[in-house]
Design a protein around this nucleic acid. Structure first.
Lengths: 154, 154
DNA sequence: ATTTATGCAAATCGTTTGCAAACCT
DNA sequence: AGGTTTGCAAACGATTTGCATAAAT
């Protein structure tokens, strides 16, 4: 279902005078396969290309609007396909324990409220908002389970 | 008005077996004075203490819940006083051009919606959310003005 | 043939850490 | 004194970059 992102990506790269090389395609496929934001290290392992190429190509893909950089709670940058290439706008669940980042979709009603807020801020603060970030921080299911296991010692 | 944060901070540090040294007080005062998240570099300049002390004390203050780390769109970590020491919960306007981060407050109604969302996610995804981040990205007033100036050449 | 992408290894830069002197209690 | 904090300089680690080779047009 999400395999025909490639033509769109090729076009987007071409618009920017960039080639859709095999290395870049590999990066994209890793990201498509993951379905969640990946760290550079994760991309490196799964994509098996040189570290420098991974970083360089992620930068190119980001500049062309193919890939989006996600800031989590740890020191690692994470990357995912741009929202307009996949299904839709989404947000992140960020685990403050293990750093994992997962996607989730917010109700349309909430998105509408945030958009209204953006317009209001633009008007009052002279800030031209063009997108937003709405993330939840907490403990993922896995870390939550680990907590309970650890509690047995208490 | 916001100068009596010190007793609360001292107490919070004390609870953690930490001292409220002059260096730490200086950091806090710089952050109070700024009224917006500051990078480590900004704190260093205004607080004039050793780089290592600044980072170390920011880490201590963060661990004690006095200072909160804010991720912007650039590579610099930013720090601000914890929300429960200042007035209230707020969000950030992040300039994608110069990286500046400013505070703003969202309508109560929106916060309520986000909280409801958090509860819903907790229930469906097994994710225990404890706080959220709602930030707007765009161009700040200054960068916006600079754009217009540059447009004169067009 | 010429331009662009790749891989390796070295450099970069924000941040962290080891250690000895200064500080507080 | 006993433990903590400080400042300096060196270390660290994720990311970036220089340069020579390989690939694409």
């Amino acid at each position: 279902m999400a395999d025909d992102v490639h033509p769109a990506i090729a076009a987007r790269l071409d618009d920017d005078g960039q080639r859709y090389t095999s290395g870049r395609r590999k990066l994209v496929e890793v990201l498509v396969g993951a379905g969640r934001p990946l760290t550079a290290a994760e991309v490196l392992v799964e994509g098996d290309l040189a570290q420098s190429s991974a970083y360089r190509n992620l930068a190119v893909l980001e500049a062309c609007g193919v890939v989006h950089r996600v800031a989590g709670s740890d020191e690692f940058a994470r990357f995912e396909l741009a929202e307009d290439l996949t299904d839709h706008h989404h947000h992140h669940l960020i685990c403050t324990s293990c750093g994992a980042v997962a996607d989730f979709t917010a109700p349309e009603r909430l998105e509408a409220s945030v958009d209204a807020l953006a317009r209001q801020v633009a008007a009052t603060a002279g800030f031209a908002a063009d997108h937003h970030r709405l993330d939840l921080f907490g403990r993922c299911a896995a870390c939550h389970a680990a907590d309970h296991t650890a509690d047995h010692d208490t």
